[in-house]
Structures are given as C-alpha cells and as structure tokens.
C-alpha cells in the first residue's frame, strides 16, 4: 500500500514498514518517529545509523545484538524507543521488522 508522508508518497506494508529502503529519507524518519511519540535526538540517530548499516550488511537484528553494538546498551535502547524498541526503531529506520524472537 501507499502512504504520503513528509510530502512524499512511499510504499509501506500493512504495519507501516517501508517496503523500499531507497524511498527512506530523514524527513520520513522524523514523521514516523512523531507518529510513535518520539522526537529524534542525536542518540536516536546513532541507533538508526547502526540499524541501517546492519540492514545493508544483511545481518539480522536482535535485542542482544543491539546491546552489544557499542552504540547503545539495552536499557538506554528501551529509554530511546520505549514501546517495542526494535519494532519502532526499525520502522523509523525504514528497514523491515526483524523476525527474531529474541
């Protein structure tokens, strides 16, 4: 399906995840963050950069991995993205929802 966000029409799935990472930009990220009641700080951006790097490397994400990233620890990750952090952070980063159970 399509969604207009930050004056741009992008394709998203039924849960609101971008289906084409190439359509992502920072304004879109800001908008999705706002929909999730988050205003992005430099620390959020560091996490988003990390998530996008891992996505580009096709390396699967998990909470444990985020904790070992050196970018943020698990506690701080939950503080940055309080409700379902991995789901929310990946949505903002424009990458698919991780399929991991851990």
């Amino acid at each position: 399906m399509e969604k207009t966000i930050a004056q741009k029409t992008i394709s998203v799935n039924e849960e609101g995840y971008l289906t084409n990472f190439k359509e992502w930009n920072k304004e879109i990220a800001e908008e999705i963050a706002k929909e999730n009641n988050i205003s992005l700080t430099p620390k959020h951006w560091q996490v988003i950069d990390y998530i996008q790097d891992e996505f580009k490397k096709e390396s699967p994400l998990s909470i444990r991995k985020i904790g070992k990233s050196g970018v943020v620890d698990i506690k701080a990750f939950y503080e940055l993205f309080p409700v379902g952090p991995l789901k929310t952070a990946t949505k903002i980063a424009g990458v698919p929802k991780p399929a991991s159970c851990i």
Binding site: P60, S62, I63, R64, K65, G67, D73, I74, K75, Y78, S100, I102
Partner: peptide, 16 residues
C-alpha cells in the same frame, strides 16, 4: 540462534 546464557539473559530481561 544468538540465544544468551541464563545469566546474560537475566541481565537482558532486567535492562528491558
């Protein structure tokens, strides 16, 4: 499967 050991898992749960 990237499953942590029991102690690390407890630490993850607390941090979460």
């Amino acid at each position: 499967l990237d499953m942590p050991e029991v102690r690390e898992f407890l630490e993850i749960l607390k941090a979460s």
